[in-house]
Design a binder for these strands. Structure first.
Lengths: 103, 103
DNA sequence: TGCATGTATGAACATTTGTTCATATCTTTG
DNA sequence: CAAAGATATGAACAAATGTTCATACATGCA
């Protein structure tokens, strides 16, 4: 007769967490987070130059990340500056860096 | 004349991190991590009962997670017990829980 | 006003992931 | 050894994501 084994997360939390993680789980988007954790704000152009990502693709990524609450943006002249909205996100990277999972 | 703005992660690290994050970024797989952070090991059956996931689907998830170095498994009689191989992974969940990103 | 620059958008397509289903394998027990 | 239980596997299909391309929009400047 097995006991009910508890787990702490409910369905909604699990879905939300997965949703956020998915948003970040991409090399380019991780790089953006990393970059913005070291530089308080950067324009789309600057990010594109540094990461060497094509303009439209980068814009799609940024839009997604903003939509999901990870980034914030402010328009200034013709440039749009993005910055981290969620300060805890870079911790994910640290956290992952310490793991030595296989590939 | 803009300076080169450094970022700390190289391409390989970014790809690896994204790869691990992707593996975890799924409600069922997060639940598995959560469950196994609270119970040192569980059989496929137990996990399936608790999470109410169909056998084959669960097996696919577990196999993936094992392949990517997140879980470990040991066969015992007719059961297979899974446990967390990577102790830092549950930290991701905590980390994410503290964020208040949009949905 | 018209051109250049910076950014966004949307549709089409490509690729990756998730899910289901049928079936195989292994182990235990009658 | 046959049947039942636990888990894995693989192919087929479905759905979600990533990428590209063409083009639109906004802003600043000649």
């Amino acid at each position: 007769m097995s006991e009910v084994i508890a787990y702490k997360l409910n369905k909604a939390k699990l879905e939300k967490a997965a949703y956020i993680l998915k948003t970040v789980a991409h090399p380019t988007r991780l790089a953006i987070v990393d970059l913005l954790s070291l530089n308080s704000r950067l324009s789309v152009n600057e990010i594109g130059d540094i990461l060497d990502v094509e303009q439209s693709l980068l814009s799609h990524h940024l839009t997604t990340m903003k939509l999901k609450g990870i980034l914030r943006s402010e328009k200034e002249g013709q440039s749009v500056y993005y910055s981290l909205k969620e300060k805890d996100i870079p911790k994910l990277i640290e956290c992952i860096e310490n793991c030595d999972c296989n590939m």
